[in-house]
Design a protein around this nucleic acid. Structure first.
Lengths: 192, 192, 192, 192
DNA sequence: AATGAATGAGTTTTCATTCAT
DNA sequence: TATGAATGAAAACTCATTCAT
């Protein structure tokens, strides 16, 4: 495989690691080249620019994750089943590819405003699952955006906890716990 | 303007706004100087470096917020009251000083690892309130870090939702809703 | 004495010390103001510029030293007496005002090309004493510039040795030794 | 020019010239880049900083000169022969590479305190030659630091004289004269 | 006379990108 | 494809000097 696909893979892996370790803006082409064992110019054989690399990594994996979420939720009909599958997929992803997961969390806030609200978006996936459940009366009625944010928060904030060492790994051991919390939160309501 | 406090205040306000609008790393000294109506060199009379400005803003306001949380939670004895007060304080802060709140959210992940786990830390404040409640049997037993992350997620992710326009302002209208979700989540347990 | 002459003296003393400790170009107005306990702007009440301060200090003391050398050499008629008096004056000056002496050595190389070859110049003083002695046949015949440089070297290089701790102070204990070396060197000739 | 050694050489040559012409602190990166015909950024591919360039140039050539002195003095057994060889080497160096020689004289006082007293140091080389001669009784007994400074002064101060046009070039024509002066000075003593 | 905040031109340094090999 | 030296625009930062008080 002397066609450069190895180099490309090395660039991607190294970039993800450096982005997560020191931040995206803080990672220079020089850093990346040195860590990946390539020349600085070589990056430009594979990506038009540093920004292109970041966008490429984000878009590809963000969409792929959204797609996986779609697959797993579709395998269930009830909301409890869907949410359990989604939580499990989140945790599995985090445990299996922590660096990639962290990269997506990191870039998300810088990039999200630019991301279309289509179904290639994990947030949108989750949103649709929740909207359906609300229609069916499986969970309390409240703004869908709020309900979606709640579930997202119950997933992402524990993920940060693992990253910072405030929660013990692996993430997957908390699947049932988090699922239960999501259901309880979404079924709760502020009156009575 | 014979003392520099007006200039200093102007720098701080402008910096917070630019940091939130375009990102911390993306904000240059030139941007800041132009927007604040000062010379570039003037910044360095008030802060040793751009990084010093960021750290200074973060540390000051992060600690002040932690202190406010401590005040409001201490006014209640039961967990429900404490968590309601905390949620209300979060939302009030967001609504009253959105830019500052967003800045703290933004910088948090770059800075948090360096922050000591003392009580000047909002996360630590919340953690202690939760630990106490768990001891008293007011909520389910689970790792404190996880429970803390859950509440934090139920607060911060909706805040992002407001920022991105997926949830309608003001934040304060959701206080009861979020409080109820926190209580439900923390009282839930994975077996049943 | 609230007329500012105290301030002026403080500026001069502090400047000399800082110039010697860290170099002239390396000493900033801020350094000077802080070390002298004055405001940055105050310097400009006494000197038109930083450069003016340097030139002023140099010119004044360089000329004063030249004048002292003139006085002491004029008190003797023979070359041996004159050179002994000159060496003694150098050493006395070094011991009594080391910082000032070092400042003159330091700035000399940057400033000398601009200095007129008049009698306000220690080097010129020495040169005239040597030229006279050569005319009188008291010392060997060689280019006056070379002979002057020799004596100067026998004085200044030991002074550096004291500054760098390679020679034990005080300088004055070596007066006879250095005088003897000067006479021997000047009386030597290359053929024999 | 596919390796950067030509560029590096150009930087070094130009830097030495500018440092000598206008002073080290007074030479800016812009000056250097323009005079060397390179971009400002190019400097930093070869040296970490302007200061690194200065240190690098000094250390390299200072040590090389010390090494040459060691070679030439070792070829002689008696002190007269050694000192003659050293003086000749100094003068040859000055005449052949005046700019480099002047640079070493210039930077010496800023850098010397940081320089280790090992044999890569011309001053230390000279010092050892003198210490040996004193042990053997070839010259008068006096502090070695003082004797070393005397010889150094008899060499360096005439060098300055050439630089300032007070002594006619070439330096090498004065080898015998200076050697004789060194011997006379070192054999002199203050009593008798 | 003294202050010290403010200035802005000038400095060093960084770094994504280009290009000759 | 890969290299890495070179670029140059833009970044952070410095600092002598000015000026309102």
């Amino acid at each position: 495989m002397r066609d450069g696909s190895n180099t490309r893979r090395k660039i991607q892996e190294t970039a993800l690691r450096l982005f997560v370790e020191q931040g995206v803006s803080e990672t220079t082409v020089r850093d990346l080249a040195k860590a990946a064992g390539i020349a600085e110019g070589t990056l430009y054989r594979h990506y038009a620019s540093m920004n292109d690399l970041v966008q490429g990594l984000f878009t590809t994996h963000y969409a792929a994750f959204a797609h996986r979420l779609d697959i797993v939720q579709a395998a269930h009909t009830g909301f409890a089943g869907k949410i359990d599958a989604i939580v499990a997929e989140f945790c599995r992803f985090f445990d299996a590819e922590t660096v990639l997961f962290r990269f997506l969390m990191l870039v998300q806030h810088q990039t999200l405003p630019n991301i279309a609200n289509d179904t290639n978006n994990p947030v949108e996936q989750l949103s649709q699952v929740i909207a359906l459940a609300m229609d069916r009366g499986e969970i309390s009625r409240r703004p869908v955006g709020l309900a979606t944010a709640m579930v997202l928060g119950l997933l992402l904030q524990p993920a940060f906890g693992l990253v910072y060492g405030r929660i013990a790994p692996p993430f997957s051991q908390y699947v049932n716990d988090i699922t239960a919390a999501c259901l309880a939160a979404l079924r709760s309501s502020d009156n009575a």
